[in-house]
Amino acid sequence: MITPAARPEPHCGHDTWYPLAARITNVVQENFNTRTITLEMVDQAQRNDYQWRPGQFNMLYVPSVGEAAISISSDSDKPQVLEHTIRTVGSVTRAIEHMPVGSVVGLRGPFGEGWPIEAIEGKDVVMMCGGIGLAPLRPMVYWLLNHREMCRRVVLLYGCRTPEDRLYADELEQWHEDPRIDVLVTVDNATSQWVGPVGVVTNLLRRIKVSARETVVMVCGPRILNRVGAWSFLQLHVPPEQVYVSLERNMNCGFGRCGHCQYGPKFVCRDGPVFRYSDIHDIFAKEEV
């Protein structure tokens, strides 16, 4: 009675378990445990189909190891070039760490809701991130620079442990020189060459002027930064409707069916990973929701 199921065509999208083959075309070592890999879809048609928005993520797949949710960190206006900044923390990321240029990984995606591009029109944009949290915001920086006329000021506040831990160090230098964007970087532990600020990233708020009503805030970092970061903007009277936070959860399917990434009533993979603060304010402060 039991016959095999129909074989679906592999396709790009948010509703499939079939990984698409993507080849690694470039690898950049960012710091001691983080690398940025550039992927391109092996299949030309799939490469042309693939569209995504800043803040979305892919499930990267290594056969016989598993999948990991990794945000896309390249320029969404060049959607065929997919960069993923990956810190080696688990089995899948370790397997990818050992892959040389030319290797093939599986890719499903793009998943989730990205940063609120509609909400920034005519506003100031302040991005606050820590550590690897810069990776999901990097497409947003590119997007803002590409469509600079959309908004007023653009500020990037970035904190990391040491100057050597900075991601995209060369690019940060470039942006630092760029008059279209204000970049402030702080480190927890300075080395002798470091002349910038030292301390937690929320301290950088003392160095900028936030016109609360006119600012859209994007926060991405470890759990503690998401909280303290979002709250520090609320303290400056930024309306909770204008504060956006990107959350991290265990992900398995990517399309809201496996249950792993539940955050109260939300599925982080489908409804997030970027949430508006006012939509999650009742559970944001709660531990272990």
Binding site: P4, A5, R7, A21, P63
Partner: peptide, 19 residues
């Protein structure tokens, strides 16, 4: 699936649902 060159080759799909 298995990897062949730069492609994923689907060897088998799961069973269809019984009636």
């Amino acid at each position: 699936l298995h990897v062949k060159g730069e492609q994923f080759v689907i060897d088998k799909v799961g069973p269809a649902a019984p009636k």
